[in-house]
């Protein structure tokens, strides 16, 4: 899949987040589908390409969220590396096989957010607030991974560049 397509998918995830949050007037929660996309990137993309895409998407997320620039960027890059490292050691196949990756990724995502909040934002209550969203976030990942991963795989297989074949 081309890099630009990855960015488009990421933007779409961010737009869905924003749409759901506004349409349902959610104040305390957003689905955060970008996490699901980052986990998929980790499970399916090359280190460099995935890390670059994660960084750009994280920075865009900073723009949407009004967070200090770099906060979600750092979160996205680290989450990609965690997910990539997990996927390179364990083979996650099928819907049920990918759920552990989703759960581990969601937990890692919250842990990283809490860590970034503590280290860089000087916000003493950040961890508490992140932990407060543990179950809703896990639920979103559990529902989204079986639905979104196959869809992304399908899009990926359609867009991936194959070596030229000699028709003769």
């Amino acid at each position: 899949m081309r890099f630009f397509t990855l960015l488009l998918l990421g933007m779409s995830a961010l737009c869905v987040d924003l749409f759901v949050r506004e349409a349902a007037a959610l104040d305390a929660f957003s689905p955060n589908l970008l996490v699901v996309l980052l986990l998929w990137l980790g499970a399916s993309r090359d280190w460099t390409e995935g890390a670059l895409a994660a960084a750009v998407l994280g920075l865009l997320n900073d723009g949407f969220a009004g967070s200090p620039p770099g906060a979600y960027m750092l979160h996205a890059v680290l989450l990609f590396y965690v997910s990539r490292a997990l996927a390179s050691r364990v083979r996650f196949q099928g819907i049920l096989g990918r759920l552990p990756l989703g759960i581990a990724g969601a937990l890692a995502s919250l842990f990283l957010l809490a860590l970034i909040g503590r280290l860089f934002l000087g916000d003493t209550t950040f961890t508490e607030r992140v932990v407060g969203l543990l179950f809703p976030r896990l639920l979103v990942v559990l529902v989204a991974v079986p639905l979104v991963f196959p869809l992304l795989d399908r899009v990926d297989s359609l867009l991936v560049r194959r070596p030229d074949t000699d028709l003769l």
Binding site: W47, P69, G70, A71, F120, P163
Partner: peptide, 29 residues
Amino acid sequence: MRRTSSPRQAILVGLLLVGTAVGLLVLDR
């Protein structure tokens, strides 16, 4: 065919991106 990056390249890119993000955060703070 999908290109795979070498471990060295992966580490370098990772460090660069993490460094950029941390730099932005520190400057903002």
